[in-house]
């Protein structure tokens, strides 16, 4: 359970690829060696650029020889999802044995599974195990439009009354307080979705003083409050000044410049890569779960592995199309010893 965090690679061959919704493809991959598909597990894939991407396991065949993924074509794709959408049956690519950061605990009296958009891929497997076990569970699936929600028909068939849909453009958006009204201290809630949704649930959860260990989510550390943009990092004690590109992390940029920094999980959980902020021109987009809300508001430290610097503080302004971009690049100066 806690063991499968080290990547081991094998060769995968695309068996089938077909649309699962608008902008989402279901990709089935045949494996050389069988694997056990646990709920909540994901695999890493090496894409054509050499980069690595993680995708949740939506399911697998009985004999463990075939796994199913759901891949969303991101409009801001840096190549990963575009490459994945170009795959055809017969294509070969390296794939890890399943990795597990989001295990389902069996035996809770009640479960709430909350999926936002493509986040459904992390919860499909959990829902089917809970159904098989006869557990008390509800699968809540939130989306903007029905057309963009993957696996809808098969989910409805499998889960019937246990599936609840909230679709924005059908006038049925999710109310987080109403959702948590149905959660008692013994309920375990598993969620995967946009950071705004997960953050809203986390705030409400804390406010209601529900037991924090019962709120389970997968953090991959990739989505923030702001779009990733380039920013400048300075580490005066190392004589380093470099631009952090949109395709790399602050920690990557520091290491590339020769700065020795301690780190471990690289997904904003462990707190080993925390660095003190000396000065800031812009807003820190804290993408970690290590700091508390209070610590994040202080902006005196950040997790270098996931957090970024953005131009504006107010995320609402981001959507404001008319707002003129600031001319200077956001900049952060770090006290790295």
């Amino acid at each position: 359970m806690a063991g499968s965090v080290q990547a081991r690679w094998q060769t995968g061959r695309v068996h089938a690829a077909a649309p699962a919704a608008e902008g989402i493809r279901r990709i089935e991959i045949e494996l050389e060696q069988p694997v056990r598909v646990e709920p909540g597990a994901h695999v890493d894939l090496r894409i054509d650029s050499g980069d690595v991407r993680s995708y949740s396991l939506v399911g697998g065949s009985q004999d463990g020889r075939r796994i199913t993924l759901g891949v969303n074509l991101s409009p801001t794709s840096r190549g990963g999802s575009r490459y994945m959408h170009s795959l055809e049956p017969g294509d070969i690519l390296p794939v890890t044995f399943p990795l597990q950061n989001f295990p389902l605990r069996v035996g809770a009296p009640r479960y709430m599974l909350l999926a936002g958009g493509i986040g459904i891929t992390a919860l499909v497997g959990m829902a089917s195990v809970l159904r098989r076990l006869g557990a008390d569970y509800t699968l809540v699936f939130v989306g903007r439009t029905r057309e963009r929600m993957a696996f809808l028909e098969e989910l409805r068939e499998a889960h019937g009354e246990n599936l609840r849909l909230h679709i924005d453009d059908e006038g049925a958006p999710l109310s987080v307080p109403q959702l948590l009204d149905q959660v008692d201290p013994a309920t375990e809630l598993y969620m995967c979705g946009p950071i705004r949704l997960m953050d809203a649930v986390r705030r409400e959860w804390l406010q209601r003083e529900l037991p924090l260990p019962n709120l389970r989510y997968e953090t991959f550390g990739s989505s923030g409050w702001f779009q990733a943009e380039e920013f400048l990092v300075r580490a005066p004690s190392w004589g380093v000044e470099t631009v952090v590109g949109t395709g790399e992390s602050l920690l990557d940029a520091l290491e590339r410049s020769g700065v020795e920094a301690m780190s471990d999980c690289r997904k904003g959980e462990c707190g080993l890569c925390v660095l003190p902020v000396e000065s800031l021109d812009g807003a820190i987009d804290h993408r970690d779960v290590f700091f508390s809300e209070r610590q994040k508001q202080d902006d005196t430290t950040l997790c270098a592995c996931v957090s970024r610097v953005a131009r504006r503080k107010d995320p609402a302004a981001q959507a404001d199309q008319g707002a003129p971009p600031s001319s200077s690049m956001p900049t952060i100066t770090l006290d790295v010893h």
Binding site: W9, Q33, V52, G64, R78, R266
Partner: peptide
């Protein structure tokens, strides 16, 4: 799968992102 994967053939370092 848990024991016979090839631990040597790790991929090139690359940016990590999801979905």
């Amino acid at each position: 799968g848990a024991s016979s994967g090839d631990p040597v053939a790790t991929p090139a370092e690359g940016a990590r992102a999801v979905r």
